[in-house]
Design a binder for these strands. Structure first.
Lengths: 353, 353
DNA sequence: CTGAAAGCGCTAACAA
DNA sequence: TTGTTAGCGCTTTCAG
């Protein structure tokens, strides 16, 4: 390769640069015979550059293998083209669809996604926020609502567009795409009641959203007369999030030991439901005739189980795509329309309930 | 808040700065009564700063809510503290454990992970590489081997530490953490043979790694006499990656229609195996007595199925953690030891085979 | 242990 | 349409 350093081989220069040797826009510009800013325009805003120069710059880029330094570009332009996505844990499965579609939608516009795992406890949240804000992302997508006042304030004062998701709240930090967990619980209770179930139970995670679903399920169930006489709440088992298939198996067993008459179980995720289905089969309990099972998430395998799993579907892909659009709009000052969106949910009726 | 701009309220200044109004290290330094560089040292290299100054800087940070701009820091120091992780698709499930442990291990050292989804086709690979290199990450973790010569060259000349994973290759770009897919295929064939299976088949994805597993499985099976007389290969069905539970169900049915005597199926993932198990149950085929089923991945639910799924386990968490260590070592010029690692695999014997 | 100066590689602002 | 200049916010280099 040619010598691209800036220093003339001269003598008395008070030299002190630490040029890394990498190819910079300057090198491209020199090769193309234009000013750096012109090369920059050719790359980022082709329409304002003449065709001739455009071609020369392109050639120079090809020849040198130049790759723009987005750190530098981001610093200068205040646009990092980075979006941070925070999910409780990637192994939780439920949020993958959202991350997938968010990543894909953003990638189309030259944006990348930085992943943050918050865990289900709020402990490391502060470090995470610091790490995120430090990158000056053009957007932050949160799973759930930011509850801590400190976190809300931090995010707010950072000025970064924030999308909270998977929940509804009266005062979002900024933008919101979610659904009502209370409604989910109630809808599932009504669904089961309408199909003749009278002794329902829940297998839930200990996180806030799951708890609210389960509580409203329980309340509705009681209102509908689906609790054992004299009970103030329906049978419920709770496990640390993220819940898994194992919890479904042991949970069902425990539930039945204590309440032999249970005829329906509402699970906090399809993974749990898979465990319930499996345990029911192992125990020789017929689903749905003896026991109805409802999951949450509508993961890909749900429809393939035997019996096919009835479940609550949340359109994660829609959440991700919409969040991407919101953020992209924002970063172009295209500030159109309402930024609070209830995407609802649906109960996918299949064979297990 | 106080006025933190740099401009004296003066008059004739040839002003032209575009200070964003955000709090910068300069503001912190001024508040602490030190030079910016001293504040920088207090934050990044506390040991070289006197206790008194340390305290003043800390106070100033707390008071202002200062969050370092990592874009600026990265540009100046050539350390982005960003690591790019490329996986085929996040919804594939198999690689999550790796991403999870990579993210966690790096987070402990102040590094973040940027996610890239390559899809299973190599089409968008080039854009992805450009996007990645443009961020000047301190490391890139690739799922699988980079096959394209252009990609290899690009990465190589970027000077970024690269870890290829989930495979073995004679000439990795840089570092490598993987296992032999050929050995997996052979080991599974031998495992089934040793347990008396004589008519085996595969349900595989169409990606390169799955194909090599299946081919070597087939070869070994034939050598061991597990093919129908006169056949040059065992029955095999292929679907586009990522394969799913549905493929397991339809695949088993198809396989049996054409080869009623099949007594074992090796699946390209636990998800597929779940489908096979489900279909077998629906068809009234006893597992393992009539049909043995082996998966790959040892996902969390595998042990919870009924029968519990025998599967090939790859320690994704180890891959992720090791990749993190390799990259961290590199970024500190701690260049110790061999950087090619075969982590092997194990067949987890459970009830389905 | 502390500081002044000079960039890192890029783009906004202004000028031609 | 193109160029000049002056930073973006931080850290390296060199000097005290």
């Amino acid at each position: 390769m040619t010598d691209f350093t800036d220093n003339p081989p001269g003598n008395d220069v008070p030299k002190r640069r630490r040029n890394s040797g990498g190819i910079t826009l300057r090198d491209v510009a020199r090769l193309a015979g234009v000013a750096p800013i012109t090369a920059s325009r050719a790359l980022n805003n082709p329409s304002v550059v003449s065709d001739a120069i455009m071609q020369r710059v392109k050639d120079a880029v090809a020849q040198t293998g130049y790759v723009p330094n987005m750190l530098a570009g981001g610093l200068a332009s205040r646009k990092s083209r980075l979006v941070a996505a925070v999910i409780p844990t990637i192994t939780g499965n439920v949020f993958l669809e959202m991350v997938q579609s968010l990543t894909a939608a953003l990638a189309q516009h030259g944006y990348q996604v930085m992943l943050g795992q918050s865990g289900y406890e709020d402990s490391r949240e502060d470090e995470l926020l610091e790490a995120i804000i430090g990158r000056r992302p053009d957007g932050v997508v949160l799973t759930g609502i930011m509850h801590s006042a400190a976190g809300r304030k931090r995010l707010l004062s950072s000025g970064i567009p924030v999308v909270e998701t998977w929940d509804l709240a009266p005062n979002p930090i900024d933008m919101l795409i979610g659904f009502s967990h209370e409604k989910v619980g109630r809808a599932v209770a009504e669904y089961l009641h309408a199909r003749g179930r009278r002794r329902v139970a829940t297998l839930g995670a200990d996180d806030d959203r799951a708890q609210r679903r389960m509580r409203s399920f329980s309340d509705a169930a009681i209102t509908l007369g689906m609790a054992a006489p004299g009970e103030a709440a329906i049978p419920a088992l709770v496990a640390p999030a993220p819940t898994n298939t194992g919890f479904g198996r042991t949970g069902l067993r425990e539930l039945l030991e204590q309440h032999a008459d249970i005829d329906a179980v509402f699970c906090s995720s399809d993974m749990v439901a898979l465990g319930v289905l499996t345990e029911a089969q192992a125990l020789g309990i017929a689903v749905p005739s003896q026991l109805a099972v409802i999951g949450l998430g509508d993961l890909a395998f749900a429809r393939e189980l035997h019996p096919a799993l009835t479940t609550v579907r949340i359109d994660g892909a829609l959440i991700g795509a919409t969040a991407a659009r919101f953020i992209l709009d924002r970063s172009q000052d295209r500030d159109v329309g309402e930024r609070i969106l209830d995407i609802g949910f649906s109960i996918i009726e299949r064979d297990s309930a």
